[in-house]
Measured scan of single mutants.
Amino acid sequence: HNLTITQGKLFFHYNPKLCLSEIHKMEEVSGTKGRQERNDIALKTNGDQASCENELLKFSYIRTSFDKILLRWEPYWPPDFRDLLGFMLFYKEAPYQNVTEFDGQDACGSNSWTVVDIDPPLRSNDPKSQNHPGWLMRGLKPWTQYAIFVKTLVTFSDERRTYGAKSDIIYVQTDATNPSVPLDPISVSNSSSQIILKWKPPSDPNGNITHYLVFWERQAEDSELFELDYCLKGLKLPSRTWSPPFESEDSQKHNQSEYEDSAGECCSCPKTDSQILKELEESSFRKTFEDYLHNVVFVPRKTSSGTGAEDPRPSRKRRSLGDVGNVTVAVPTVAAFPNTSSTSVPTSPEEHRPFEKVVNKESLVISGLRHFTGYRIELQACNQDTPEERCSVAAYVSARTMPEAKADDIVGPVTHEIFENNVVHLMWQEPKEPNGLIVLYEVSYRRYGDEELHLCVSRKHFALERGCRLRGLSPGNYSVRIRATSLAGNGSWTEPTYFYVTDYLDVPSNIA
């Protein structure tokens, strides 16, 4: 807008934040220059609390790290170098490059900038070799853009010569660093050979998330399962459950009422301010606690030095998902009996873990797994792929695949051998790939016309006998059925096997 004052003059007093240069501009645009008398524009009460600059400061050096910015700028000295009290560095987070010096300023003089007072450097006698002032900004957020400017702080001049310097606002972004852990990993099994893994992005990506790394490792069953005799009275049979499938998407929606109208769909109840505040506090606490764990609990591995020492970490090797089922080394339970199943799973520490690289999504279907087997899954978020990966501390989750139908069934015939004193040795093959492992066998036998009897055969007993022995049988026709019990439950009964026990007292003698 054009402003013209045809008559009258300007009068400025007691404006401590208004620089004289701005008042002189007002004289020019209003056409009143030359009308004012000496005392109409006070030299001592206008701009006496402001830094009124008329020179431009330029930054000469900028260096960044993930949490620091090192700045240096060209030296500046007023005509009387004693008038320079120091520099004021202003900075704040700036997602967009549209910041002005006066953003967030209120009537009390406060604003949204963080201000650092910096002492002037030592003055050199040689004007050509003056030290460049600077400042190291610490405690910054990774991968965050900051708006920065600097200006001088000078003393009051009796001659009211307006001098000083100020830089333009520059924008500097800190470097990326390792992201925080992925949030809320959930693993479920939808079949006997697959596990579905879902997660949420890290709360602090500290860069642009480029991919996720998912490692999985087959877990050995508890050692007590191999040692305890679950045929003993009072000892509860062990059981394991597989990871249940995901709930429906509708039930997972946030901010939804727990109660549904019987007449149909209901609208979600909005969260109160107290609920939102509580969630923010919980989120802040979780982030602080995660940072504490990362800094205190997890110790970084030592990389190899120039002395030739090897990095103890196993090298990563990509495998196809079809090879995942046989990740671990199978060892027989008892070496003397080769027909026992290889369900003991000690994992070799030198073995390469299978892994998958996930790009542009937060889910993965891990296939080719062994049925009813526990897996430990390790999830890392990465925001750099080359020249070397920059990934987060791992988040861990466990899951067990679903049982395989008929995996616990005894394959092959049940054979028998009759000894003296009416002892019958029953023999059968253990299931080759049971659900988890076989903890015991149930032997059901009966003599024709009598009630059915049951015998429990422990895992250890089966390994020693290759089956079991029935003792003290009365003469007669017998039928026997056997079924295995694994961590997933009972298998199917075998087809009945028949044998006849004679009275050993009636056996004919070869003595003449």
Rank of each mutant, 00 (worst) to 15 (best):
C456A: 01
T272P: 05
H425S: 07
S444Q: 07
A399G: 12
S283W: 10
R400F: 04
I366H: 01
K406R: 12
S284V: 13
P354E: 05
T502S: 14
Y259A: 05
C391Y: 15
P354A: 15
T272L: 05
G306R: 12
F499K: 01
R319L: 06
T485G: 01
T485M: 14
A309H: 04
V214G: 11
T340K: 13
V327S: 09
N206P: 01
D503G: 02
Y498A: 08
L440E: 09
E495R: 08
N206R: 14
R447H: 15
E417C: 03
R481A: 14
N422C: 06
P354L: 12
L232K: 08
E417S: 11
K271V: 03
E465Y: 14
E217D: 05
N326Q: 09
S274C: 11
L455N: 13
L369C: 03
P244D: 11
V393W: 14
P338S: 09
Y445N: 02
N360S: 10
D323T: 12
K302V: 09
G308T: 11
S243P: 10
S367I: 10
L280T: 05
K317Y: 08
E420V: 10
L232Q: 07
T347I: 08
S243V: 11
P403H: 04
V324S: 04
S341G: 09
H454G: 15
S392W: 00
P270V: 04
E260F: 06
E249Q: 14
E465S: 13
H211Q: 10
T340L: 10
G368S: 09
V359C: 08
T307W: 13
E452C: 15
L455R: 10
T288M: 13
D408V: 03
E495W: 07
D385M: 12
G234E: 12
A399L: 02
N490K: 11
N255Q: 09
D229Y: 06
R319W: 13
L453D: 03
T303K: 12
C456W: 00
R390Q: 13
D408N: 13
R483S: 05
E224Y: 12
V393Q: 01
A381F: 00
E378P: 03
K287H: 02
S458V: 05
A484E: 15
E378H: 07
L487D: 12
E350L: 05
L237C: 06
L464S: 11
Y375S: 01
S458M: 12
C267Y: 04
A463R: 12
N255V: 08
N208Y: 10
M427H: 15
Y504F: 03
G234L: 05
R446L: 10
S283R: 13
K253V: 02
